[in-house]
Design a protein around this nucleic acid. Structure first.
Length: 439
RNA sequence: GCGGCCAUAGCUCAGUUGGUUAGAGCACAAGAUUGUGAUUCUUGGGGUCGCGGGUUCGAAUCCCGUUGGCCGCCCCA
């Protein structure tokens, strides 16, 4: 063994792993295109300042950052949001609205690897810019659902938990807390699910013990699981802000219900999301059965583009990671087995038949089919075994008997049926047998 | 950054109180098998036991260090 190891938290993708990853990327891309999103990409290496500007100096500890040979402070991208904000910001005036963009790329974080968390990972990012209303949330959450349902996952497998940072701030304000207190309390609320009552200790040390009645109201808010419950709890407050948020909630949940997606989404105000730049709705996708990390997360960040020095442009976005998604698909038996299976495997009798087979193999490949054959003479029986193990759909049989008759035998490897076709109709016959065009 | 557990073939593992040349199953390759796929049999390749040091006549085995993995904490954009 010995030699070299890959760096901690970095993965190597042998063909089997690569095909699983490609399957994930393919579902994401198909989903995004179906929803009318356009794909973009951007540099993997960025100025360190781009991330400090968004998240503060302490972020540097979790970045792959260094000084390049030109003395520039740089970092491998830990996320897409600042980059895509820059891209959109640069051309904000020239882009048709709404701007619906997505990307698939690799990201890097200098953290200790854990289950579902590595130092290099892939993310699908989707964002809508230029739409301030909750219509953007409907579109994005629907896309997120499709990005998971596209693998064959159902409402029994995952759940989108929808929350709202603005609603929390307005609610806490109505309870009499100021902005600093509210921010501190949201930190406690974020930890409440995991730590229970201890989560409030930090808040008590900084801002004094929370009044029992306030705490009870906060905990009641956390328990809300439906829109009627939310409406009921907010009814006593005469707040225009709260009423406006509630109207947005009705729109988002109503829109998703109209799409038939209501079973995928739950009101859950326990989701706060650590990052302070979220300004409204926030949401996360979770595995319903297991104890995996979040599958996806996102929300509205209306101020970020302006804070980075560009136009004032509202934005909503989310990201899905490939690591947790891969684990979930594995657990559910939804990881594909034969992503790179050939369409056709040519079974070749011997050297004499090889030339005839080559002509057809080449023609089929030029037409776009995936075609494979044994490089050297192999026993007939073994060739069928190889074809079946590779996952080929059809075997084309080039034996002495067939060629003498001017035909090729086509064997359907799934039902073992066979038929003979004239040599000059092989491409047509393969197209018929495989049902239409090349992917 | 902190703590716990672990490291033997490509994979899953066995390896006795420290004792000759470190094993099995699976996988891979060749053959039995020159015309039809999940069987069977035979044979073969593949390991300086993660790496470095120490104790010992002798270390996969005991000790120390180190690297990596898993799990948890912090963090989670």
């Amino acid at each position: 063994m010995a030699g070299f190891q890959s760096l901690p938290g970095f993965r190597e993708f042998f063909p089997e792993d690569f095909s699983r990853r490609q399957h994930i990327f393919r579902v994401w891309r198909q989903s995004a295109r179906a929803y009318g999103f356009q794909e973009y990409d951007a540099p993997v290496l960025e100025p360190l300042e781009l991330y400090k500007a968004k998240s503060g100096d302490e972020i540097e500890a979790q970045l792959f950052s260094f000084t390049d040979k030109g003395g520039r402070e740089v970092a491998l991208r830990p996320e897409m949001t600042p980059t895509v904000c820059r891209l959109v910001g640069e051309k904000a005036g020239a882009l048709k609205r709404p701007i619906k963009w997505f990307s698939v790329g690799e990201f890097y974080r200098y953290e200790r690897a854990q289950k579902g968390r590595l130092r290099a990972f892939n993310q699908f990012n989707a964002d809508i810019f230029g739409e301030a209303g909750p219509e953007a949330e409907i579109e994005l959450i629907a896309l997120l659902i499709q990005c998971l349902a596209g693998f064959g996952l159902t409402k029994d497998d995952f759940l989108i938990r929808l929350s709202d940072r603005d609603l929390w701030f307005f609610y806490l304000e109505a309870l009499g807390l100021d902005d600093t207190q509210s921010r501190a309390l949201l930190g406690a609320i974020d930890r409440y699910e995991k730590m229970g009552d201890d989560a409030f200790k930090g808040y008590a040390e900084a801002h004094g013990v929370l009044a029992e009645e306030t705490k009870a109201r906060v905990l009641a808010f956390l328990k809300i699981k439906s829109l009627p419950d939310l409406e009921a709890i907010l009814r006593p407050f005469e707040s225009e802000k709260l009423a406006a948020r509630l109207a947005d909630w009705r729109k988002v949940l109503g829109g998703l219900a109209a799409m038939g997606l209501q079973d995928f989404v739950s009101v859950d105000l326990a989701v706060v999301r650590g990052l302070a730049y979220y300004t409204g709705f926030v949401f996360e996708a979770f595995d319903r059965k297991g104890d995996l990390r979040a599958l996806a997360g996102g929300g509205r960040y209306n101020d970020l583009i302006r804070k980075l020095g560009y136009a004032d442009l509202p934005a909503v976005g989310f990201a899905i990671g490939d690591v947790t998604t891969g684990l979930l698909l594995e657990q559910r038996g939804l990881a594909p087995t034969f992503v790179n299976a050939p369409d056709v495997y040519a079974v070749i009798g011997g050297e004499a038949e090889r030339a005839a087979a080559f002509a057809d193999i080449c023609a089929l490949r030029a037409a776009g089919w995936r075609v494979d054959y044994p490089l050297k003479d192999v026993a007939f029986g073994k060739q069928f075994k190889i074809a079946a193990e590779a996952g080929a759909k059809l075997a084309l049989i080039y034996g002495g008997d067939e060629l003498a008759k001017g035909v090729v035998k086509i064997r359907d490897l799934s039902d073992r049926s066979e038929r003979e076709v004239p040599r000059d109709q092989v491409v047509v016959a393969v197209r018929e047998a495989l049902g239409g065009g090349v992917e």
